[in-house]
């Protein structure tokens, strides 16, 4: 995992309602560090005084997203933004893409390998669980191009 501190102009260049922005790099295949980005973001949300229930829901989505990148993609950038009445996250990966998003959103549908399952993931719960834990969830995918997730949790 590498972490990029935002430059001041990152926030300045973002939409006017963005109060905090930070980007994190997730490396595909790096199981040993899988979860560190979600843990780091959770610590940031705590420092920012975000409601613990909101933080937990978003962190669960982040952890699932992070593990998906590690399992399936080459790499991804996870961008955290605290803006107005929500905390929002964009995860844009460089990966194989998802041919059938409807199928991937079904609980229990999985293309996971034995190694993924041995790590405790790949049970086909990731995307549905991300949707369940967020107030807004969008997914775009191009086969051979990559997948982008955009989700947000309203701040209580």
């Amino acid at each position: 995992m590498t972490q990029e501190r935002p430059r001041e102009d990152d926030v300045a260049g973002a939409p006017a309602d963005v109060l905090y922005r930070e980007a994190f790099r997730i490396s595909g295949g790096d199981y040993e560090h899988g979860g560190e980005v979600a843990a780091r973001v959770k610590a940031i949300l705590k420092e920012l005084g975000i409601d613990p229930a909101c933080s937990r829901r978003l962190s669960i989505a982040n952890f699932e997203a992070e593990m998906n990148v590690i399992m399936y993609a080459e790499s991804a950038d996870l961008v955290l933004e605290v803006a107005g009445d929500e905390v929002r996250v964009t995860v844009a990966d460089r990966g194989p893409g998802i041919p059938d998003i409807g199928l991937a959103m079904q609980e229990g549908y999985s293309t996971a390998t034995a190694e993924m399952r041995a790590r405790g993931f790949g049970a086909g719960m990731g995307l549905p669980n991300m949707k369940r834990n967020t107030d807004r969830f969008e997914i775009e995918s191009v086969v051979g191009g990559g997948t982008t997730l955009r989700y947000a949790v309203r701040i209580a």
């Binding site: 199981y31 040993e32 560090h33 899988g34 979860g35 560190e36 979600a38 843990a39 959770k42 613990p52 937990r56 962190s59 669960i60 982040n62 952890f63 593990m67 790590r119 405790g120 993931f121």
Partner: peptide, 17 residues
């Protein structure tokens, strides 16, 4: 309670509080 001892077990405990 789990039999999974990888680093994800601790990150899961952290994230899910």
């Amino acid at each position: 309670l789990t039999g999974l001892t990888g680093v994800q077990s601790v990150h899961t405990a952290d994230v899910a509080e």
